[in-house]
């Protein structure tokens, strides 16, 4: 009999198995990497799956142009350190070429525009599988999504027509133009991700740790004051100690007041939190009760 193993060992073994299945059964996979904590875990899992060889797929970032500079710096450095190939697909280019139109006003965000850039990049590179770091605990629509999530040739997700997923037998068959989104850490929670980062001693962008930042309050959340948002008349920037719980655009990702400057203290705060990750930090999900479901159907991450 072997000793009982930890939940992180079990979750890791499942994720590595999933990544190897995709590499073996699909022709042109890609790993979506945002520089955020979930995709940092994906990169580590890919190392676990394929070392000492290189990854059998490139890494791709959908760059909105509104990212935190600390995260872009981290992205370039991390991918270079592990010696893999990085593709950057740019929302700015999609705007410049007229594929999408920039939103305007104080609440303008490039969040939704990313979907077009992502689908264009998938078509351009003829990717038939894209690894993402989505988790089922993030949101109610995600809880119903398969690990291998089939997308038609418009990139759309149809929750009523999902393939049954049995044992560890995944069906990734696609026709030309279709693809699968694959979520190896579907069964992980936010706390699992942080505990894994701690266990594996993974580097994360500095904005995940408490730091002094100029912010302003809007809708009960704190946002970074930046060139990408215009303030309303009654919004006054001020400086305080914050950290980020998720990494998204500067324009729509909320910060959390915190003094946690070490990984251990961040993990302790996350374990004790009373609000979900998306509820606390993502303005994009507050638009409607079914905001995430709608964006997923359109082909969002």
């Amino acid at each position: 009999m072997s000793a009982p193993r930890s939940h992180l060992d079990s979750l890791e073994a499942e994720a590595v198995h999933i990544m190897r299945e995709v590499a073996a059964e699909l022709e042109r996979p890609v790993l979506l990497f945002s520089g955020g904590k979930d995709s940092i875990v994906l990169l580590r899992l890919a190392e676990k799956a394929f070392r000492p060889a290189g990854f059998p797929f490139p890494v791709m970032h959908i760059d909105t142009g509104h990212n935190f500079p600390e995260v872009i710096e981290f992205r370039d450095r991390r991918v270079a350190e592990i010696g893999e190939r990085l593709i950057v697909a740019s929302v700015q280019q999609s705007i410049d070429s007229g594929r999408v139109v920039e939103e305007t006003g104080p609440r303008a965000s490039r969040n939704r525009l990313q979907t077009t850039t992502l689908l264009d990049a998938i078509a351009e590179h003829r990717f038939d599988a894209a690894f993402g770091g989505a988790r089922r605990d993030e949101e109610r629509a995600r809880a119903k999504e398969r690990i291998f999530s089939f997308r038609d040739d418009f990139g759309q997700w149809d929750p009523r027509a999902q393939r049954p997923e049995l044992w560890s037998l995944y069906n990734g068959r696609v026709r030309r133009g279709e693809h699968v989104r694959v979520f190896p850490i579907s069964n992980w929670t936010e706390l699992d991700v942080w505990e894994y980062i701690e266990r594996e001693e993974l580097e994360i962008p500095s904005i995940y740790y408490a730091h002094e930042r100029e912010v302003f309050a809007r809708d009960g959340m704190l946002y970074a004051a930046s060139e990408f948002v215009s303030l309303a008349d009654d919004e006054r920037p001020f400086t305080t100690s914050v950290r980020y719980r998720t990494v998204g655009d500067m324009s729509c990702t909320g910060a959390v007041r915190s003094g946690a400057r070490t990984l251990t203290s961040v993990v302790t705060e996350i374990a004790a939190t009373t609000i979900t990750e998306r509820g606390e930090t993502r303005a994009d999900d507050r638009v409607s009760e079914a905001a995430m479901e709608d964006r997923k159907r359109e082909g969002y991450f």
Binding site: H7, R136, D137, A143, K144, P159, R160, Q162, S186, N187, W188, T189, L191
Partner: peptide
Amino acid sequence: IDVAYRAFATARR
């Protein structure tokens, strides 16, 4: 409509 997967934890499992 469909099978949903949910996570929770106690100190033990």
